[in-house]
Nucleic acid binder design. Sequence first.
DNA 1: CCGCGGAGTGTTTTT
DNA 2: CACTCCGCGG
Length: 675
Amino acid sequence: MHDDIKSKLNPSQYEAVTTVDGAVLVIAGAGSGKTRAIEYRVAHLVEKGIDPKSILLLTFTRKAAHEMLSRASRHDPRCKDVEGGTFHSFAFKVLKKYAHILGLSGSFSILDESDASEAVHRCGSKLDFFDKERKTPKKDTLRSIISMSVNKGLSVSDILDKEYPHFTYLASEIEKLRKEYAAYKIQKNYLDYDDLLVFLRILLGKTDVHKKLSAKYRYIMVDEYQDTNIIQGDIAYLLAKDHGNIMAVGDDAQSIYGFRGSSHKNIMDFPGKFKNCKVIKLEDNYRSTQSILDIANTVLENMNNKYSKCLKSVRHEEGARPSLNFFKNAYDEAGWIVSRIKELRDEGIDTHHQAVLFRAAYISIPLQAELSRHGIPYQVFGGLKFYETAHVKDLIAHMKVISNHRDEIAWHRVLTHIEGIGPKTADRLTEEIIGKSSLAEVIDKVLAPSDRPEKALKNTKRLASFLKSASSFKVGPGTLYDLTFDYYFPIMQGKFDDWHIRLNDLEALRQISSRYESLAELLGDFAIEPPDRGVLKVEAKSHEDEKPIVLSTIHSAKGLEWDTVFLIGLVDGVLPSAFALNDAESIEEESRLLYVAVTRAKDRLFLSLCHEGMRGGISQFNKISRFIDSSNILARLDQNLSEEVSDGDSFDLDDGDGINISYDKDSLLKDVLEF
DNA sequence: CCGCGGAGTGTTTTT
DNA sequence: CACTCCGCGG
C-alpha cells in the first residue's frame, strides 16, 4: 500500500494523506484530486491500524460519502466500517441516542420542509398572526425566514431587512412566531432539518456528550468545508477540539450554498481555531483540458472577490475549444443536444460519461421529453424530489400515523383526505387523537363514534379498518406499504387526474419500503437521506444495457466529473438566477456556480442558450448571461448560431403556402366535435 | 362546515 | 403553469 500511495499521488496529496495527527486544512482547487486524497487517507489510516469505526467522514451528500468509502474499501475492505454521512444524518443518529439528555424523546419525528411550513402555519394561526386586514407572508416564506435566521445566526429583523424589506414592520411578530414554532416542535417532539444541527450543537457544547463522541471518533474529516454554515462549523470544532485530529477539505471558489447560510468564513477561520494547523494546497488540475480551465479561470478573474487560484492542467493538452451555441427555442436546443449525444456515443463516448447541467431543474424539461422520444435513458438529479410530491407525501403520512400516533401533522393530512371531513373537523379530531395513549384507542374512541354525516362515516370506517389491519399484527414496511396503497389508491384517483403517471413514484416507494426492516428506520431515512428520483424507464431497444445519461442541477453535480458536459440555460434570469440580480453577493455566488459547472468537464464543454423564454405564460426574449457576455470569455469560445448547428432531426415545415384554405371556423368546429 | 371553482400570484439551489 | 387563497352554494 505504501508504495502504492507514493506512486499514485503528487507531493501535496501525499502530504495530506500521510499527515495523521493534528489539524489539517486542504485547499483543493477543482479537479485537483481531492476525492482521491480523501480516499487514500482513509485507507492509509486504516492500514496503520486505526480502528475504522473511530474515523468519521462528514460530507455534503450521501452520494459523496458512499463514493469515497467504497473507493477506499477497494484498497482495504475494512474501510467500509468507517462512519460516513452528512452532517444531518450524523446529527440524526447521535440525537436518536442522546436526545433524552436534552429532555427530548429519542423517538422524535422529522419535519421536512412542507411539514415545517404546516407547523409554522399552525403556530401562526394560534397567535392570530394571519390577519386578513393586512398582507402577511405565506407560510412557506415564514418558514424560510425563520430557517435563514437560524442558519445564518442572524435575527429575524436582519433577515427581513435583507431579503424581505417590505415585511420589516412585522419583525417583532415574526420573532414571536419563531419562538412559538420552536416551543411547538419541542412540545410535539418534532425536529426540522435545522433542529438536527442546532440540537447537536447544544448537545456537544453544553453537555458532556462531546467527551464521549471525541473518544469514539478520534479522526474527523470534513469534505466541502466551504459549504458548511456556522452551526456545522461549530459542530466540527466541538467534535475535534479534545484531540485536535481533524482534516477539513474545501475550495473557497466553489462555495455555492450561501443561500442556506454557508459561510466561506469557516474555511478562512479554520487555521485559527486549531493549534499548529497545517495548510496544504492542491493546485494541479488532473481533470480538464487547458481550454476548459481557461474558461474557468476567466470566470474567477471576472469576479469581484479575487480568488488566488489559477488552475493549471497537468494533462498537457489544449483540447477542443468549448463552444457557445445559440438556439431559437428550447426544443431546437434539446434536439441539437440529443443528436450531439448520439454522435458522441457513436464515437465511443458512452452516455454515462456525458452529462447535462443546469441552474434550475425546470430548464431540463424539454430535454427530458426529447431524450424519451429518442429512447435514451436518463436520470435526473436535483430539483423536486419525488418524496416532496403530493401523492408520495400522502402515502407516507398514512404510514407515519401508524409509526407515531401523536403525529398531528400526519393525522391532519390523513383526515382531510376523507370525503366529508375538512380542515375544521380534522383539527378537532386531531386534538382528540393526540390525547389518546395508543393507536388502538384512537381507532376505538375517536374514529368509531358516529356523530358525523353519512359519507364521512363510511370513509372513516374504511380508514379505521385499514389502520387496524396495518397495526394489529407485526407487518414489515413492505406489507404496510401494500395495505396503505390499497387504502389510498381510490383517494388518489379522486384527487389527481394524472394519477396513472403518479403511480410510477409510488412503485418506487414500494420498492424502497420493501428493503427496510423497520418502519421507524424507513421514515427516518426518508426524511434525511432521501432517495433520488428513480431512473426514468425508457424502452431502450437498441441500447439495452446503456447506462442512463445524467441530467443534474449544478448543485447536485458538485464533486462529480464527466468527459462531456453540456451546460444549458446560459441566460440572464437563469444563470444568474433572476432571484439573485439585486444583490452583489448573490451574483458572486451565481458566478461561482458557473465555475463549478464548467470545471465538471474533462474533455468537451458545450454551453448553450435559447432566446425564446417563457415567464409566467408570457414569452419573452432571453438575453445571454452576463457572465458569458464579456469579451474575455467570448474570445475563448467557438460560437454557433442555431441555423449552422441544427440538423435534419428537428421538424422542418414550411408555412403552408400554396395549400388551399378549405376551412372556416364553423366547419372546423364541426369536424372537431365529430371526434 | 365542506368542497368546488375562479382569481391571483410568483417561479432556485438542499438537508 | 401550478399552486394557494378566497368566496359562495349546498
